[in-house]
Design a protein around this nucleic acid. Structure first.
Lengths: 169, 169
DNA sequence: CATATCTATTTTACTAGTAAAATACTTTGT
DNA sequence: ACAAAGTATTTTACTAGTAAAATAGATATG
């Protein structure tokens, strides 16, 4: 709890830097938004590192999980919306996953422009194996927090998410 | 506050999906970690969109801000650590920023392997213009939260960050 | 004082992502 | 029914990122 040079997390250090360099600016928002960006990046790196041995990228795993929780085939455009990547990326991820037999693409009889994506049995197995491990690593990140703290955090983050997900931000 | 199909944020929908598809799994951690990843991605996209007209990527802007708050030149390796990108990326970002006259590279007399990076006057001007806009957009994300809520959130996120930033996670 | 080993950065070869154009199908309006 | 406009996905051309090799300078040990 001292004012030691490297004390605190990344954002504490950044904030001390700004306080020195630009004392006129109100940088308080980085206490929340900067930490969210930093923790998000750390979590993404960690996920990538753990999926690499399976030969999967995080984006590919994200597609598999999106399909796994949907309970049925999804349109390519629905997968695009869920993953926050471009449509072009969805095409490429689908190509790679289909080549490995983890998903299959189906036409949709109601609209010939649409491509439906569905997990294969092999894809389901991979999610059954990797998604619980993913959840366990997420839980480890929250190790120091009580249940009540997690609930507070979830509620506050939901407010921000509802705000940030509004169409024209 | 109903159980309407699309109600809540992205994570509420994902959680309902998992509850249907895998009722045996405890997915509660996504309430926190999933939201952090989602909000982080939204914030990054928004930043990229706003910097594009200046011909800057988010990574380049991050380098400029890191140098701006440091109060002096930094080693390439210090910039690498702050941006969470690879050293190869730092070389490329430094090339692009130097070519545009926003930073300069200096040798360090105490160690000839080291390259120091420093903002030029033009680089400082760009940060003076863009960083306050960046902060303002961050503040907009927090619009619905009281000061006390922001403080709670910051304190809880700091705990997670300290946990997640530990060397061997 | 060599020379082997470490360290900081850059280069190389490659992957994943994007925007915009192309393609293919559907809907709308007359 | 037919052209024009709209929509979903894929292709193309390109950018930013990475891991690993290469380069160049520093440090340690016999």
């Amino acid at each position: 709890m001292s004012a030691e040079a490297g004390a605190g997390d990344f954002v504490d250090r950044a904030r001390r830097g700004w306080a020195q360099a630009r004392p006129d600016l109100d940088v308080a928002s980085i206490e929340v938004v900067g930490r969210i960006a930093r923790i998000g990046a750390l979590a993404n790196h960690r996920t990538e590192r753990h999926l690499a041995p399976e030969g999967l990228t995080r984006a590919e795993f994200d597609v598999l999980c999106t399909l796994a929780r949907s309970g049925g085939p999804l349109r390519a455009s629905e997968v695009t919306a869920a993953t926050m990547l471009s449509g072009a990326s969805t095409t490429k991820n689908a190509d790679r996953l289909a080549k490995r037999g983890l998903i299959e693409r189906l036409p949709w009889e109601r609209d010939g422009r649409v491509v439906l994506m569905r997990l294969t049995a092999r894809g389901e197995e991979l999610v059954d194996q990797e998604f619980p491990r993913f959840l366990e690593r997420d839980r480890e990140m929250l190790a120091g927090l009580t249940l009540s703290e997690r609930e507070q955090l979830a509620a506050l983050l939901r407010k921000i998410a509802l705000n940030a997900e509004r169409p024209g931000d």
